[in-house]
Design a protein around this nucleic acid. Sequence first.
DNA 1: CGCGCATACTTGTCTGACGATTTGCGACGA
DNA 2: TCGTCGCAAATCGTCAGACAAGTATGCGCG
Lengths: 234, 234
Amino acid sequence: MDSQGSFPLGPSSLTEALYESVRKRIVNGEIAPGEKLTEVRIASEYNVARPTAKACLERLTALGLLRRSVHKTAVVPKLDEDEIRDLYFSRETVERAAVAALARRGVVPPAAVRAQAAMKAAATDMAFENQVEADIAFHAALVTGVGSRRLARMHEVILGEIHLTMGQFQAHRTTHPMNVAREHDDILKAIEDADPEAAQQCLTHHLDQAQDRLIGQLRREGGAVAEPSREAPA
Amino acid sequence: MDSQGSFPLGPSSLTEALYESVRKRIVNGEIAPGEKLTEVRIASEYNVARPTAKACLERLTALGLLRRSVHKTAVVPKLDEDEIRDLYFSRETVERAAVAALARRGVVPPAAVRAQAAMKAAATDMAFENQVEADIAFHAALVTGVGSRRLARMHEVILGEIHLTMGQFQAHRTTHPMNVAREHDDILKAIEDADPEAAQQCLTHHLDQAQDRLIGQLRREGGAVAEPSREAPA
DNA sequence: CGCGCATACTTGTCTGACGATTTGCGACGA
DNA sequence: TCGTCGCAAATCGTCAGACAAGTATGCGCG
């Protein structure tokens, strides 16, 4: 079988490339939630040594993209309702501080504008994953635009889990992306107007919407997630 | 003889114990800022293999307690004024959200009360490190009391760097610990009164005080920290 | 005295191996 | 027949040794 050795390793250093590749596969839902990721499996799939795979899994575990306890196999987590609430509470904490800081200065980060443009472009015809990417990029741009290394670092972890959850639920499929884009515009406008209160309010509204969509979908699907990736390619 | 292999490894698993030990040595200032930590040094000091030491350094680097770029030795960071501001900005973001959440419920976490008691006990006669520990424990209790795993995780990283900085500057030496304890009491009281606004205000005041003390000390000491290991023939 | 090259040091990665722990399956006894 | 115990397989934790690659430092040469 082709059970060993042919996943492309893209960018730079070995560990880095491996990490990025596995990360992408997880957040895009290619690796189903609940699926087990052993060190030897990663090692053989990518033709790397086990310590390298181990380091990769450890990094992903630290970021919350994998779960494991001692001597047990790492699994891709499936967030329940409480965890999604917790995740969004933390996300709101960080992003509210970010937009407030931006609004106090009254300047919109250029990267956020670019991401918003990409968002609108992806809203009409592009693939689902591009919409998610653009949405993530927009929020990331807001936070990195503040210029605080540590805030950005915290947000990166949060966004990783957000990305994972969106990839699993594919919540954007059930939503009109233009609505999301409109809410993004509201946030940008409040920042431009140098109105921290309004910016925080718009952001909270935006995130609450997203959270409700996710939880609604979670309840609808129950535990019976549609994972058609199990059988032969149709 | 004493150059290799006799640091006590306390608690549990090897990597865990190693990590905890090195972490403590760093945050307590036993390892001076700017000091280089090579993998082989850790490995020989603790009689562990180099991969184990490597993993330890990687974890500490991820937490911000060490800095290193590729192929270069890890060093204990010395935070400058900008970084301290950034650190306290992030800290305020997290802790403000925490006390607001607590005040909304109107309940003070028992752990915070206990930590505050320890703080007052340490204020009079105990060693400097105990005061720092108690202060850290108090703030940690506030955040973990919210019950958000992710907020607590973010805060843990922040507190690590806070601990490091306090250990380096020993800012508490120049302060009356009773003042700090009083400010802690104000925060607790506002939470008990279920007044989120007041709680946030007390917290911000408390943290701003601490930040100013740190920056003041930084400016006073300048770069002239007591590390006479620099001397070179003129 | 400055610049470039060679050497030493450190890290990145791999191979290979052994002990420890967990887990699942099967056998034995009540 | 059912429950419990024990053994074996799978997996992880740790270690040892080695080579390659990158960085920094010192030396010699111009």
